[in-house]
Simulated scan of single mutants.
Amino acid sequence: MKLAKIWMRILLLVLGLGAAGLSHAFEDDEACLMCHKYPKMGRIAEDGTRKVYYILPEVFSKTVHRNVPCRDCHSYIKELPHKPVTEGVNCSQECHSVKNPSTGKPFSHKTINDTFQQSVHGRAKIETGLNNDKPYCTTCHTNPLYNPAEKALPQKITDRCNVCHEDSRFVGKWYNHTSRRIREVKRSSKEIVAMCSACHSNKDMVERHQKAAGAEGRSLGRKFPIAIESYSESFHGKVTKYGNTEVANCLDCHASQANYYMSVHDIRPSRDPKSSLSKENRVETCKRCHQAADENYAVLDPHPSSKKDDNLFRYYAEIIYGLVGDAALFGLIGLTAFETVGRRRDGASWFYRNGTSWWRRSKRGRDRIEPSA
């Protein structure tokens, strides 16, 4: 029996390495591609979610995780072929085969994951109840391609690197890794608003949290139920919708700019002193765009709401302005209608000449004819 298992592993290894070589993909030392290279491999779980078990070698070989062996993340797999998986990958695990060049220790996302756990979004990968509504790492992060616009490495750069580093394979890895990160990889304002809206505009989710908070005696942020709706009504939201990139999006206010890429993982409620929107920090946050902002300016509400319970003045102001606007519109339409009926009754006809209209003699002696030259 043991001999059969040994031969099975050898066969899988040989076939797997052959498949990896043919696809010119990453190194598949443990023959994972023997099974997982087939598109559409997966199943529908008991809770109705779709589980995907396949990877495309030609795509994965160009991603930022291309050098990470499968079992560095899937460390719970102890044998091949493996038994049904029940644990899943945790983004804070160490990559035992990839070293952090600055420390010499196994690479890990643990530091940023610990920061994320302290934020208002913090959660474990597998959660139940209200915590399951929160975003996990993969909600916002994908496994992006290295500079997909570049069909090939720029030889004028890599040739120069090879003079000293000598190993063209090392140079290719270094270039792909570094060039992606020195480029602007920050999401656009529209993408950020869409990403935040995916959860904060979900009415069912908002209602669940409101009910739970009420039952537990907790207080949610005053703008939590209308965050996206009110942002869309604001000046910031309206000009962002039409492509302006200079006004504030969600993360411009809710994340610190001191270390933006770390602080987006550490978003906190405004009542937290560490939040960029706390009373202590709000003025400085406004000054990022509005240099003359002071405490009076910071009192202005960036999430305007027309709901009666949230802003009574705005609620009635919108009603009054709506009535005034409707009255003015119908008044103008009515005046135009009366004038048209009266002129038609007087026998005038419509045509445009010399900058005015309604010429021709009137049957009632109210002539309006073009003056003689």
Results as ranks from 00 to 15, higher is better:
223 K>E: 05
191 E>M: 03
235 F>M: 12
210 Q>Y: 06
232 S>H: 13
195 M>T: 14
221 G>K: 04
230 S>E: 09
201 S>A: 15
204 D>H: 14
211 K>Q: 14
203 K>Q: 14
201 S>H: 08
219 S>M: 06
209 H>C: 10
195 M>R: 10
204 D>L: 11
204 D>M: 09
206 V>M: 10
221 G>T: 08
228 I>C: 00
203 K>M: 07
231 Y>W: 09
216 E>Q: 15
236 H>P: 04
219 S>R: 14
228 I>G: 01
192 I>R: 01
202 N>H: 13
220 L>H: 05
223 K>N: 12
210 Q>W: 03
206 V>G: 03
232 S>V: 06
199 C>Q: 05
228 I>V: 12
220 L>T: 06
205 M>R: 14
226 I>K: 11
217 G>H: 07
202 N>C: 04
193 V>D: 04
234 S>Y: 10
218 R>I: 01
238 K>P: 01
220 L>C: 03
213 A>C: 08
207 E>V: 09
197 S>I: 01
208 R>H: 11
234 S>R: 08
200 H>C: 05
206 V>F: 01
226 I>F: 13
210 Q>M: 15
207 E>Q: 15
209 H>M: 11
210 Q>N: 14
218 R>K: 13
210 Q>L: 15
225 P>L: 03
236 H>I: 07
203 K>W: 03
231 Y>A: 02
214 G>E: 15
211 K>A: 12
191 E>F: 00
197 S>G: 15
193 V>E: 04
239 V>A: 00
193 V>Q: 02
215 A>G: 08
210 Q>A: 08
237 G>F: 04
209 H>S: 09
239 V>S: 04
237 G>E: 03
201 S>F: 00
226 I>E: 08
205 M>D: 07
219 S>P: 00
221 G>Y: 01
207 E>D: 12
199 C>I: 02
202 N>F: 05
212 A>E: 13
211 K>G: 07
224 F>C: 00
230 S>N: 15
229 E>F: 01
210 Q>D: 02
205 M>T: 09
217 G>N: 09
218 R>G: 05
210 Q>S: 12
237 G>R: 06
198 A>L: 03
221 G>F: 02
195 M>D: 13
212 A>T: 09
191 E>C: 00
203 K>I: 10
214 G>T: 12
198 A>G: 09
215 A>I: 12
213 A>P: 03
191 E>R: 05
217 G>F: 07
196 C>E: 06
198 A>F: 06
198 A>E: 01
224 F>M: 09
223 K>W: 07
217 G>R: 11
216 E>K: 15
207 E>F: 03
230 S>M: 01
196 C>M: 14
215 A>S: 14
226 I>Q: 07
204 D>N: 14
236 H>G: 10
220 L>N: 05
237 G>C: 06
216 E>M: 15
222 R>Y: 04
207 E>M: 08
223 K>M: 00
237 G>I: 02
209 H>G: 10
208 R>E: 07
195 M>P: 00
238 K>T: 05
238 K>N: 08
226 I>V: 08
221 G>H: 05
228 I>K: 02
217 G>V: 02
191 E>H: 07
203 K>Y: 09
229 E>H: 07
215 A>H: 13
229 E>M: 03
